[in-house]
Design a protein around this nucleic acid. Structure first.
Lengths: 209, 209
DNA sequence: CAAAACTAAACAAACGTTTAATTAAATCAA
DNA sequence: TTGATTTAATTAAACGTTTGTTTAGTTTTG
């Protein structure tokens, strides 16, 4: 699906508002006004509010699998280093597309919309597949332990990152980082979080503990 | 605030519906019908839909601090064992009050309602305080490392548990546990998750790694 | 018999979507 | 290139529902 500038603007505005006020908390009129387009244009382009949401998911779901696979095939890296790459990739993705991940989180909880739930589960499944493949490879090569719970590992990764994302302000206050610029803080928290999760993953995956 | 049977039923129905359809996705009429009360009774008892939500938070926030403190003072346990107790307490709380934690999660993301956000932050702050105290005690007694990031630790605990909770069905399918009864599965996942998080915490907190 | 509990009906406002009319852009024979 | 004609884009207004809340009246309770 190829999108015009106006369609893109509607999509981005909708993503922003859905993230900050929820799907049901955002009216089509809100989106139209904030995007600076006529109310009817949204139905005209996307059909309905629900299909607008689906369009957001379609846009954000594109190429996810490809990027991860490219990351993991690419090199002759050790399994653990590949896992570290994956962690950094995940952190970047969540922090850069915060709005989308907020929407995903709420939609998973509310799970009112079967179409969206299906899209989310597909994304999850693809991720689980990539990670499972990586873990099995690591186990074959003797770098990783046996008996690793992939679902728990994924839950820790996405759960920790998401929690940190939605409580960034709290983190900033707690560690007295108000003096940093937004950009500096973003870099800081990404780096710290990366190191932290890698430590955990090293413990979970490797023998030496 | 003392609540009559009818008020309690409204509150419980609202909690259930808010969790499964979201605050804005649930109408006051939905709640009234499901609770089997007249529409006007909700305004009569609680004033408004929003205050109904606040009443849910008030009810669920009661005694949280007391319970945690009692858990931690109580015994002559090692710091690490106290932390393990806390992990189990957290898992039980989230799994038993799933609906409320779903609501909390969405409200944090959407953060449209300042009153609710304030209540959530108070809860978070109390928890952070208790954990910080426990960690400092453990450090003083030489059982815990220095340089422990409490916010990250809390994010891992609550984030992992929450993720596992909202993707229970996925976990059940992934591990082929459909033969277990709901109750058996609940016991199983709580135990596994407890062991898993404790392993992580041991690595984060203790010297031996 | 006064206070509390409860009800059906009504309220205005907001909702997602559609309509009918208008303007802009693209297509194309001359 | 011109002017005619079709297609796409855009608009204000209206549609019928649903929304949260209130009202005015009735029943129940202490």
């Amino acid at each position: 699906m190829v999108l015009s500038d106006k369609q893109l603007q509607i999509l981005e505005t909708a993503e922003k508002l859905f993230a900050s006020k929820g799907f049901d908390g955002t009216s089509v009129r809100d989106i139209a006004e904030e995007a600076g387009v006529n109310l009817a244009m949204i139905s005209y382009y996307f059909g309905s509010k629900l299909k607008l949401m689906e369009a957001i998911f379609e846009k954000r779901s594109m190429n996810v699998r490809e990027r991860v696979d490219h990351l993991l095939q690419n090199s002759a890296l050790e399994p653990m280093d590949k896992m570290y790459l994956l962690v950094d990739e995940y952190i970047s993705r969540v922090m850069e597309k915060q709005q989308f991940f907020k929407i995903m989180l709420c939609e998973q909880v509310v799970n009112k919309n079967p179409v969206i739930i299906k899209l989310i589960n597909e994304l999850k499944f693809k991720n689980a597949e990539s990670i499972t493949r990586l873990i099995k490879d690591g186990q074959k090569r003797g770098a990783f332990k046996k008996n690793i719970d992939v679902v728990f590992m994924m839950s820790t990764m996405i759960g920790t990152i998401t929690q940190v994302m939605i409580s960034q302000d709290y983190y900033r206050e707690f560690h007295n980082l108000q003096s940093l610029s937004d950009e500096q803080f973003d870099t800081h928290i990404k780096k710290k979080l990366g190191t932290y999760i890698k430590t955990i993953f090293k413990e979970i995956l490797s023998y030496e503990g």
